[in-house]
Design a binder for these strands. Structure first.
Lengths: 341, 341
DNA sequence: CTGAAAGCGCTAACAT
DNA sequence: ATGTTAGCGCTTTCAG
């Protein structure tokens, strides 16, 4: 096993200068035919592969992007990973996983990785800027960063988002249209923007229907199965039990439905439940969960596309790409019992 | 905004040579005190950060590892990502996502990335070597690669695995101990090693109990929910319906259970079901799925640890790290009806 | 169309 | 303990 061939070796073998080899191999179209194929052959026979590290230094690029999420093990990100990865690959970029676990230190660390040249751009899905950057979010200006999934307020960076308010509102309207009036909302952690927006949608739909929201009808959970179950139990220990639940994400909805089963309540016979996100398993859950579906692969793809534009210094970048959601109506929602109306 | 400070700038400001700065900043312990803090101050005030690309070229390292899986969007990998990422970070490495989608071209591509210096090491979770490498799998010798999760046969690379045969055997024994005799197995794609091993465990347990496996009792699926449902329906259209199912993974088990529900059969009243993998949602599925649980985060962690050893040129590397699984007995299995015995 | 030469920013011998 | 020097392997002016 000879040690790796460098550009110089292949230059010698082809009887040209290193510069020409570089040009030939980069398909610059600046090398004439007899030379060109001679170089290609030489490269082939030496099993040449360019040294990425040298190239990176010279070109001041890394051909990598950083994908920063709160928690890599959240199933929600799966298809997003795929969308990002596919689009990145196609453009010659590789994807670095960034996992913040909500630690401010980590968040900063990934910003530093960007500065340090580990990556050429970054997709932020954790909904936060590091504190040191947050002081003046407007100053972030032309950093090669795209914010996706989770909105960062007062931030000039390009965003790729769904309309959380609208989607939530639509979900609740579905319940209303089934005749439900006592609709409670299990909310995600506040003041995280996403949770607040979804709650806003809920409130909007209730207001539009002329319904007041009883005290305690908007308990706050943490997006986990356990918290969905616990908050559901509380809601159903009230005198004015809800007949329907709009829940901030699917995990909490799973917890809630299981809890209802434990309480001897039938879904959707006694209680209707709508979730948000349409996880991988929501469809095969029992009963199949009615939920807001986000085209996650597409979110990843669009975010990466935006980032490519930013990295290319494209002039015209939409500050906000908004992605359509759809309400998947499945088995966990049904008409309100007439006695409840 | 000045352009980035380099080591030279800080050398000038501190009145020393670049080499000294490099030494000081790398905590080599070779720089004396007055100088040291002078340099640190200078670095601080210039907001200096080392240029990773230059360092990488010089040191011939990338401080990145490649994590190669068949399909990033498979929920099974989630916690593995987390385990790998955490261990890598701790050691100063970042993690590149590799997604093969079972394309031979892609598999090769990631090998090339390794050669090209994109990464210093690779964790292979796709159960395959690229064809060009496979010709002589023994020759892979000391490439910085660890195989995890999926076994590659006749391959000298270090492996991190669970005992698929033993775990499957244990799962089936659980069913046997509940009094089941007509136990069918929905198998994953053959001849993929993992599927074959799990089937082997099934056969072993059946043989140990002195039970013959009827023709058609081992249908072959593809690890998807849909195939689990379809194969389940076929099994229950037979005259000698099974009373229990051991299924190659949780997804197919979900499909099967839903299908049983459609057929009006109760789980576990009429049919017991055991899955394999213990996905995120298996516990909150209805009924909660009895399944073989793999400590996935630990698999990721151990695989990354092995890789660190390999990359450090450690002499003593166990060729096989085997990880314990546990059978989580939950609500989808119960005693066989006496009439069925 | 091709060659010569410089240099990306850092680290590691080697010398003092 | 610090400085000097060289060079990692590539790309890209600038000349010709």
């Amino acid at each position: 096993m000879s040690s790796r061939a460098k550009i110089k070796d292949i230059a010698e073998r082809a009887g040209v200068s290193p510069a020409t080899v570089s040009r030939a191999l980069s398909d610059s179209g600046l090398v004439a035919e007899p030379t060109l194929s001679r170089i290609r052959e030489a490269a082939q026979s030496l099993d040449y592969r360019p040294n990425v590290r040298a190239r990176n230094l010279r070109t001041q690029k890394s051909m990598a992007v950083l994908l920063v999420v709160r928690d890599v093990s959240n199933p929600f990100y799966l298809e997003i990973f795929k969308g990002v990865e596919a689009t990145a690959r196609e453009a010659g970029y590789s994807v670095l996983m960034g996992n913040t676990e909500n630690h401010p230190g980590r968040e900063l660390e990934y910003f530093d990785m960007l500065r340090d040249g580990h990556a050429d751009g970054m997709i932020l899905m954790n909904g936060k800027l590091p504190l040191s950057q947050s002081r003046d979010p407007k100053q972030l200006g032309r950093l090669p960063i795209v914010v996706a999934l989770e909105l960062i307020e007062d931030c000039v960076l390009p965003h790729v988002q769904i309309d959380n308010v609208g989607a939530a509102c639509g979900a609740v309207k579905h319940l209303l249209s089934l005749g439900h009036r006592r609709i409670a909302h299990i909310c995600g952690p506040v003041p995280e923007v996403m949770s607040v927006l979804r709650r806003e949608g809920y409130r909007k739909a209730m207001a539009a229907a002329g319904l007041a929201i009883p005290e305690g009808y908007e308990p706050i959970g943490d997006y986990t199965i356990a918290s969905g179950a616990a908050l559901c139990r509380e809601l159903f220990s009230r005198a004015d039990k809800p007949t329907a639940l709009f829940i901030g994400n699917d995990e909490m909805a799973f917890g809630a439905i299981n809890e209802l089963r434990r309480l001897g309540l039938d879904v959707p016979g006694d209680v209707s439940v709508v979730g948000f996100d349409d996880l991988f398993l929501s469809e095969c859950f029992y009963p199949p969960l009615t939920t807001v579906s986000q085209p996650r692969a597409q979110i990843g793809q669009l975010a990466m596309n935006q980032l490519l534009k930013v990295m290319n210094g494209d002039a015209a970048i939409e500050p906000l790409v908004e992605i359509e959601t759809t309400l998947k109506i499945r088995g966990s929602t049904g008409p309100a019992k007439t006695s409840d109306n």
